[in-house]
Design a protein around this nucleic acid. Structure first.
Length: 514
RNA sequence: GUCCCUAUCGUCCAGAGGCCCAGGACGUGGCCCUUUCAAGGCCAAAACACGGGUUCGAAUCCCGUUAGGGACGCCA
């Protein structure tokens, strides 16, 4: 019965993602874009991008760029050129005029003050406000000469408007609950609802996939489609994403824009995988490749209930993807993200104490203690470059095994570029007692004489020392770790020595041995 | 307030009348592995909001209650 099935038969699917330029790509919008993208890609359809910028106050190029940037990073490339809705205003006006000419709309001379009064009165009487403009029936000739007017749709007042939705099901709105919406403002500019309908119709959108917050707009827009005698597209209004407390996602929940997720070091594939599982599933599958998603995704399988955003689960997923990513690719990702980090700004970030800990903020703090000279990610990048990116590359296999995000991974890699003498944190300092120093002193000459400098040779050497002296390996490894990294937690200590190189290793050990 | 939507472990999902004394994943606790931390393996605790129906049989269908959420702009 569904048109989805019909589309599978032949009608090409055309969908669009239509964000308004708010300055960043909202994480919820990102999921909407993902659903659209998946649906189009899975059916050989088109996925277009339109910027809803009819509100001129909101227009600014950087805001648009931020959205395009976010989509590109997420891997949700659109087909064709992005369309500015504002640029099509003349066509929107043309449709409004057509509606006016055929009696489907009328000029309304109600002033803002009058509407305000109606609103106040409705509030006082505790009844919902539905504007009933007298100008719907009144002769426009009665209007004061040259008075400004808005154009309202002459919506049906009886009966109902039905939205047949692929996610929400059949949603019925009583027409008496809906008022005559304005399609042209008194300054002659089209409003959102008109613009959307005209644009979607003109480019042949077959499926409108967007947030449920647009559900009532779907009813209103249906009335415009009917007024023009146009076909109504298939609807799919997906539930919203909420914060951990169940309220609408906002700044205090951690992060809203995808660029923040990028800064924390989430991988696009992991974020996509996480996002798609919010409201949609394929049996018990959790980790799904993009190919599988494209093949399996369907709008009829989307849930109706809102989901809460859970960083822990995202972290877990990201860890999986991190471990799977080839080192060269990971290195490139790190190099790409580093310039986005401003440690001072991150440290100053006022984060809600109840919000989840951010790994980029943690990194900023770690950087302050381990590489105080680096104020930004770019500085850090220079340090890694000076040391040789190869060193980081060599450390990646053991590093990626223990990180959830790129920021966390970098935190753990900081020991590589820390200047001597490195600073030990409290636990490492405590561990570095007389016994520990003695062990270091004893082992330095052995390491200096090592024939080979690689993890397994070093491990054999240190194990040999431990056995000879009847010491548990941990007793030897922990002081080494602390002296080398300044922390009691790090990648395997033999890997650390290996990537640090003989000279640096011996120098750091000697620093602590005395 | 009015209209609309939702309601399965703490969280995300599975479940489309008997396969369910409810399954998976994250998180949590324990054990194993182990040079730290992870990763991995094993085990455990943990839910059908409540009340009525319908039915031989309901997590699944219907009604109500309660609790969430969304929409009510000459914003998008």
């Amino acid at each position: 019965m569904t048109d989805t099935q019909r589309s599978e038969g032949g009608t090409p699917v055309v969908v669009r993602f239509a964000p308004s330029p708010t300055g960043y790509l909202h994480i919820g919008g990102a999921r909407t874009a993902l659903f659209n993208w998946l649906y189009a890609r899975g059916r050989g359809g088109k996925y277009l991008l339109r910027i809803e910028d009819t509100d001129r106050e909101r227009n600014n190029p950087e805001a648009v760029a931020a959205i395009l940037d976010g989509l590109t990073w997420l891997g949700l490339e659109w087909d064709g050129e992005p369309v500015s809705q504002f640029s099509r205003a003349a066509r929107h006006r043309e449709v409004a005029e057509a509606l006016l000419a055929q009696g489907g709309a009328y000029r309304c001379y109600l002033t803002p003050t009058e509407i305000d009064a109606m609103r106040k009165q409705a509030e006082a009487e505790k009844r919902p406000l539905t504007i009933r403009s007298p100008w719907r029936e009144r002769d426009p000739a009665e209007a004061p000469q040259g008075a400004p007017f808005a154009v309202r749709l002459k919506a049906p007042r009886e009966g109902e408007t039905v939205v047949e939705d692929h996610v929400q099901g059949r949603v019925v709105f009583q027409n008496k609950e809906l008022d005559d919406l304005i399609i042209l403002r008194s300054d002659g500019n089209p409003t959102y609802n008109l613009a959307v309908v005209v644009d979607d119709h003109d480019i042949g959108i077959t499926h409108v996939i967007r947030g449920v917050d647009h559900l009532t707009n779907a009813a209103r827009q249906t009335q415009i489609y009917r007024g023009m005698g146009w076909d109504v597209p298939e609807w799919a209004h997906v539930p919203l994403i909420h914060g951990a407390d169940g309220a609408k996602l906002s700044k205090r929940h951690g992060a809203q824009g995808v660029e923040e997720y990028r800064a924390m070091g989430y991988l696009p594939a992991a974020l996509r995988n996480y996002l798609v599982r919010l409201g949609w599933s394929h049996g018990d599958d959790e980790i799904m490749s993009t190919e599988q998603l494209v093949q399996w995704f369907d709008i009829d399988g989307i849930n109706k209930s809102a989901a809460r955003f859970d960083f822990k689960k995202l972290d877990d997923l990201n860890g999986h993807y991190l471990r799977q990513t080839p080192d060269a690719e990971l290195l490139a990702a790190i190099q790409a993200m580093l310039p986005h980090l401003d440690f001072a700004a991150l440290r100053a970030l006022a984060v809600d104490p109840k919000a989840p800990a951010r790994s980029d903020v943690a990194l900023a703090h770690e950087a302050a203690s381990q590489v105080p000279g680096a104020a930004t990610g770019a500085d850090l990048a220079r340090l890694f470059a000076a040391k040789g990116w190869d060193a980081l590359g060599a450390a990646l296999p053991s590093l990626k095994e223990r990180a959830k995000t790129l920021a966390e991974l970098i935190s753990q890699a900081l020991f590589l570029v820390a200047g001597r003498p490195i600073s030990l944190d409290d636990k490492a300092t405590k561990l570095m007692d007389a016994d520990a120093r003695a062990i270091l002193t004893a082992i330095v000459p052995r390491l200096a004489a090592a024939e080979e400098w690689n993890p397994s040779a070093l491990e054999a050497l240190v194990r040999g020392y431990a056995e000879e002296t009847g010491t548990k390996l941990g007793k030897v490894a922990q002081p080494l770790r602390s002296a080398l990294t300044g922390r009691t937690v790090s990648p395997p200590v033999f890997d650390v020595m290996s990537v640090l190189g003989r000279d640096e290793t011996l120098a750091r050990l000697t620093d602590q041995a005395r």
